[in-house]
Design a protein around this nucleic acid. Structure first.
Length: 328
DNA sequence: GTGTGTCAAGCAGAG
DNA sequence: CTCTGCTTGACACAC
């Protein structure tokens, strides 16, 4: 069981998503941004390892405009060694990584242009995992897409596009049950038709379900992952923010709810991503809970990389020193 | 420096 | 019709 958080470390003084406006695109800016993002990503992963957080969702913005036609620069070859080195570190430390392409990736859109751009984005993000030399257990997590007034038709379009994906992308794509449109049951139908693994989101399941108890739902989702080709099933964990709109993620881990949730696993192994507002802070608290229950290994004893670079170091990192010093 | 409108991209539902 | 939320944060320009 690996524990992680998505994209951003709130205490770190660098961002792995530095970018710029499309209007100010230049190859110089692109190269500078990618170099800074990869350097920050390395520091992030090292910090995660030092804390025992072995699961991480990388952000979509490592290569700005990575699937946009304006970006004709051969970043794959220019940064090949950097991607390879990151992949070596990930494999050596036995980290699990993934991407979650954003809401613009809609494989079941009736608009062929949207489908094409969606596939381009999956190819871009998948190619980063390929460049890292990672196997099919490093996943691309997406939602089914839109409803367009006809659930069956919408699912059929997803299945058709999925079958036509480049094989390297299809091997990585997993679908997540969402909180309003496509439930675990819908995803299970898709799995039967396409073989796509289901990334289970416990909170979305609480928002949208057909009466399946949590323990059974976890078992059903886990069974859609091939133990070797797909690896340990991934899941997203969150809970309802108190006194907020239904479906809003909690600002911080509610340990009692998480303890209750863990009892529903009944020994099932999952790699768990904590989609919680305060990011690594809640992931660390969850890890502590799991250690109490002997479900996670002991705390690492190695050196802890600094959250902030020393003055003068790291010219590529933006001057954001104040962020690392901000009050809790 | 600090404040703030806006940023490549889609969809559904609330107000 | 417009605004919001979704993993959201960060750029860019005004002051």
């Amino acid at each position: 069981m690996k524990i992680g958080y998505p994209c951003v470390n709130e205490a770190m003084d660098c961002s792995a998503a530095s970018t710029f406006r499309l209007a100010s695109y230049s190859e110089e800016r692109l190269v500078a941004a990618v170099a800074a993002n990869l350097a920050c990503l390395r520091r992030l992963l090292e910090w995660n390892v030092s804390q025992g957080l072995y699961f991480f969702r990388m952000g979509s913005g490592i290569v700005p405009f990575g699937s946009h036609e304006i970006n004709a620069y051969p970043w794959q070859t220019h940064f090949g060694p950097e991607f390879r080195a990151l992949g070596e570190y990930i494999k050596q430390q036995e980290l699990r990584v993934s991407f979650h392409p954003d809401q613009f990736v809609v494989l079941n859109s009736p608009d062929p242009g949207i489908v094409r751009r969606s596939i381009d984005e999956l190819v871009y993000q998948g190619s980063m995992l390929d460049l890292m030399g990672l196997d099919g257990t490093a996943k691309l997590q997406i939602h089914v897409g839109g409803l367009y007034g006809d659930r069956e038709l919408a699912l059929s379009r997803f299945a058709a596009v999925h079958a036509a994906l480049p094989a390297a992308v299809r091997a990585r794509v997993v679908v997540e049950n969402d909180d309003r449109l496509f439930s675990l049951r819908d995803c299970l139908h898709l799995h039967e038709r396409t073989g796509v693994p289901i990334l289970f989101d416990n909170f979305h399941h609480e928002c949208l379900h057909h009466g399946e108890p949590m323990a059974g739902a976890l078992r059903l989702a886990a069974a859609t992952w091939h133990p070797v080709a797909d690896g340990v099933p991934m899941m997203d964990y969150s809970s309802q923010a108190p006194a907020e709109r239904r479906g809003k993620h909690t600002p911080s881990l509610v340990e009692e709810l998480f303890r209750n949730f863990v009892t529903e696993l009944h020994g099932l192994d999952f790699d768990i991503m904590f989609e919680i507002k305060d990011k690594e802070a809640s992931a660390l608290r969850a890890l502590a809970v799991l250690r109490e229950l002997s479900l996670a290994g002991p705390a690492p004893t190695g050196p802890v990389p600094p959250l902030a670079l020393p003055p003068g170091a790291g010219a590529s990192a933006k001057a954001k020193g104040a962020k690392a010093l901000k009050a809790p």
